[in-house]
Design a protein around this nucleic acid. Structure first.
Length: 569
RNA sequence: CGGAGCAUAGCGCAGCCUGGUAGCGCGUCUCGUUCGGGACGAGAAGGUCGCAGGUUCGAAUCCUGCUGUUCCGACCA
C-alpha cells in the first residue's frame, strides 16, 4: 500500500475535547472520525487494526470449538418480552417501530435471539455441548457516550453463548472460554487481569471480567498483594479487620446543631473517624414488611451500591429515601441519623459492626450520641458486606492486603445457568428422555474498545506504538531524496515487493513531502518497523532500519534488510 | 436526567461586549524551487457565521425558541 493512494487524514494539531490519549491519537492518526455522539466511522487505517483484533478473536474462538454465526442487529420485541427484559431494560435499549407499527429494538446483546435459535434447532443432549459466537455491531443508547470508541453507543462486540445439558458441562464450557480469553489477550499483547465480577442485571452465577490495566480505566480493580485474588470493586469482598473491643465509655448525648456530616463531626469534636458510623436510608425490598431500611457504614467508608442492591432486604434497583421520607420514618433529617432508637430494621456493614465507643446521630435533629456500643445501647447488629474496599483492607482469603488499580473492561464471561432457558422454554431431552432446560454461558469481548485500550497502554509523546499483532502494517518504508536520485524510489519499491513476497504488510510513504512530516506521520500511526531509503545510504548499498520503540536506527546492507525485518519480533 | 460550556472555511481559532464590506494560522489547489525530523516563493479556491423567529434602515454581533455537540455529576451485562 502507498500512502499517496490511501485515505490517511492525519492531523498535525490535537483535536479539542479529547480526554483520553487513545481518543486523541485515533483521531490524529486518521483511524476514526466521529459521525454523531457515540457513533464513529472507521477509516482504512483504523479498520485494519480492528480486523487484526477480530482475526485473533476468531482464531481463538474457533480453536476453542466455538462456531461463528451472525444474528440480526434488529430484534423483535416479542423475544424480549418473553425473557422479561423488554420492561427491565431502561432507555439504554433503543426501541423502534417498523412500518407496521411493530416493536423492535437495536440489539444491545443477543441472549434472546441465540436462545430462540437454539430452542428451535436443538432438541437432544446429543447435540450438546454447543458454543455459538458472532462478531456483531451492538447498540446501547448510553446516557453519556465519551472517550471516543472506549464508551460509544454503537460498538463491535464478540459475543459467544454456550449450551450444555447440565451444570458440570456449563462449567467446562465456561473454563474453555476463560482459557481462550487468556490466549486472546496474550496474543494481542495487553497487560490484563481476570477479576471476579458481579453478574449484574444479566443474571446468573459465576462471572469474571478481563481488565486492561490503565490509569484511564473506568473501573476500580482490587488485588491482594499476597495472592491471585482480584475482583472488581463492585464485587471485592470486605471482611472485618480486627475484633470489637469491649465498651470503654458510657453513651452520652451531645448537642450538634451544625454538624450534619461525618467530616464536621470529626473536625468539631476531634473524634476518630473510625469511631463514627453513618446511616443511609433506602427502600426495602417487597419481601420486607416495612418500606425502608437503614444501612450502617463506618464513617470513613462508602456504600457499595451493587452489594447493597444484592442484599435481600434492599429494593433493586437501589433507591435512596428522600429527605421527606426520612423525616417521616426516622423523626429526624439526614445528618442526625443513627442506630440508637432506630425505628426501622438495620443492616450494618461488617466493619461498622465491630466499632466500639462510636458516635452516631441520635435520630433527633441537632443531637448525636457518642460512646455508643452495640448490644448495650442498641441491638447487636445484623451484618452484611456493604462497603467499597479501600487500599490496605485485608484480603478475604487472608493472603495479604488490598491494592486498588484502574482497569478497562475488555472482556466478561458469565455462567448464566438456566435464566434464559427457563424463561424462554429452551429445553432438550436428556439421556432419560426427560425435558431439561439448557445451561447457558455467555462471553463478551469488546472488540472496538480493545483497539483504544491497546493505545492507552502503548503510546509515547510522538504517537501510537503498535505491537506486531495489531499494527495496521508490519513495516513502513520512507524513501528520501528520490527527486534527486531516482534509484531511491526504485530501491524502495523493490524492498516493498520483496517484503510483500515474504507475507508482510508494507506501507510505502511515497507522498511528495519532506522527510519531516513523513517521519512524524509514521511515528504517529505507530508502525513498529521503519526502513529509510536515501541516496546517502544507497551509495554504500545500505538502508536505515529503525524500530518504533527504539531510540536509535541502524544501518543495514540492502542484501540483508528483508531477512532481518522478517526476523524481528 | 440535573449543572456548565461551545457552535464562524477541512482542522484550530479571532471577530460579538460597543450592530455597518467575514478575518488569521495550518491544511487544500496551480506553477516553480526544496528533500534526513512538520521547507520557500508566486498565485488561487473555499463561508446560507448550527436552525427558525424577532428587534433594526441594517444582525456573525442584540432578544426568544429549537437543534447539535462537549465537559462535570447521576447512570452503565
Amino acid at each position: 500500500m502507498r500512502t499517496s493512494e490511501m485515505l490517511l487524514p492525519t492531523l498535525r494539531e490535537d483535536p479539542v475535547d479529547t480526554v483520553l490519549v487513545s481518543h486523541r491519537l485515533m483521531l490524529r492518526a486518521g483511524m476514526i472520525r466521529q459521525l454523531a455522539s457515540g457513533l464513529y466511522t472507521w477509516l482504512p487505517l483504523g479498520l485494519r487494526v480492528l480486523k487484526k483484533v477480530e482475526r485473533i478473536v476468531r482464531e481463538e474462538m474457533d480453536r476453542a470449538g466455538a462456531q461463528e454465526v451472525l444474528m440480526s442487529g434488529v430484534q423483535p420485541s416479542e423475544l424480549w418480552q418473553e425473557s422479561g427484559r423488554w420492561s427491565q431494560f431502561g432507555p439504554e435499549l433503543l426501541r423502534l417501530k417498523d412500518r407496521h407499527k411493530r416493536d423492535f429494538c437495536l440489539g444491545p446483546t443477543h441472549e434472546e435471539v441465540i436462545t430462540d435459535i437454539v430452542r428451535r434447532e436443538v432438541s437432544s443432549y446429543k447435540q450438546l455441548p454447543l458454543n455459538l459466537y458472532q462478531v456483531q455491531t451492538k447498540f446501547r443508547d448510553e446516557v453519556r457516550p465519551r472517550f471516543g470508541v472506549m464508551r460509544s453507543r454503537e460498538f463491535i462486540m464478540k459475543d459467544a453463548y454456550s449450551f450444555d445439558s447440565n451444570e458440570d458441562g456449563m462449567q467446562q464450557s465456561y473454563q474453555a472460554m476463560y482459557d481462550a480469553y487468556c490466549r486472546i489477550f496474550d496474543r494481542i499483547g495487553l497487560d490484563y487481569r481476570a477479576v471476579l465480577a458481579d453478574s449484574g442485571a444479566i443474571g446468573g452465577s459465576g462471572s469474571q471480567e478481563f481488565h486492561v490495566l490503565a490509569d484511564s480505566g473506568e473501573d476500580d480493580i482490587v488485588f491482594s498483594d499476597g495472592s491471585n485474588y482480584a475482583a472488581n470493586i463492585e464485587k471485592a469482598e470486605c471482611v472485618a479487620s480486627g475484633a470489637r473491643l469491649d465498651p470503654d465509655e458510657q453513651m452520652r448525648k451531645v448537642e450538634t446543631p451544625t454538624q450534619k456530616t461525618i467530616e464536621a463531626l470529626v473536625n468539631d469534636f476531634g473524634i476518630d473517624i473510625q469511631k463514627t458510623v453513618k446511616t443511609l436510608i433506602v427502600r426495602a425490598s417487597d419481601s420486607c414488611e416495612v418500606d425502608f431500611i437503614a444501612l450502617i457504614l463506618r464513617g470513613d467508608h462508602t456504600l457499595n451500591e451493587v452489594k447493597a442492591e444484592n442484599h435481600p432486604m434492599v429494593r433493586s434497583p437501589l433507591t435512596f429515601a428522600t429527605e421527606k421520607e426520612i423525616r417521616a420514618v426516622m423523626g429526624a433529617g439526614p445528618g442526625s441519623l443513627g442506630p440508637v432508637n432506630c425505628k426501622i430494621p438495620l443492616v450494618t456493614d461488617r466493619q461498622a459492626a465491630i466499632c466500639s465507643d462510636f458516635g452516631a446521630g441520635a435520630n433527633e435533629d441537632g443531637w448525636h450520641y457518642f460512646g455508643i456500643n452495640w448490644g448495650r445501647d442498641c441491638d447487636d447488629p445484623e451484618t452484611a458486606d456493604l462497603r467499597n474496599a479501600v487500599e490496605g483492607d485485608p484480603a478475604p482469603d487472608g493472603s495479604g492486603q488490598y491494592l486498588i488499580r484502574r482497569g478497562i473492561e475488555v472482556g466478561h464471561v458469565f455462567q448464566l445457568g438456566q435464566k434464559y432457558s427457563l424463561a424462554m422454554q429452551a429445553d432438550v431431552l436428556d439421556e432419560n428422555g426427560k425435558q431439561t432446560a439448557l445451561f447457558m454461558g455467555c462471553y463478551g469481548i469488546g472488540v472496538t474498545r480493545i483497539v483504544a485500550a491497546a493505545i492507552e497502554q502503548r503510546h509515547d509523546d510522538r504517537g501510537i506504538c503498535w505491537t506486531k499483532s495489531l499494527s495496521p502494517f508490519d513495516v513502513c518504508i520512507v524513501p528520501i531524496g528520490g527527486n534527486k536520485n531516482p534509484a531511491v524510489d526504485v530501491e524502495a519499491v523493490r524492498i516493498q515487493n520483496r517484503l510483500e513476497d515474504r507475507g508482510l504488510e508494507v506501507l510505502l510513504d511515497d507522498r511528495n513531502l519532506g522527510p519531516g512530516p513523513r517521519f512524524a506521520d509514521m511515528d504517529l500511526i505507530g508502525i513498529p518497523i521503519r526502513i529509510v531509503v536515501s541516496a546517502k545510504t544507497l551509495e554504500e548499498s545500505e538502508v536505515e532500519l529503525k524500530q518504533r520503540t527504539k531510540d536509535s536506527a541502524t544501518r543495514v546492507p540492502l542484501s540483508e534488510i528483508v531477512d532481518l525485518v522478517v526476523k524481528i519480533e
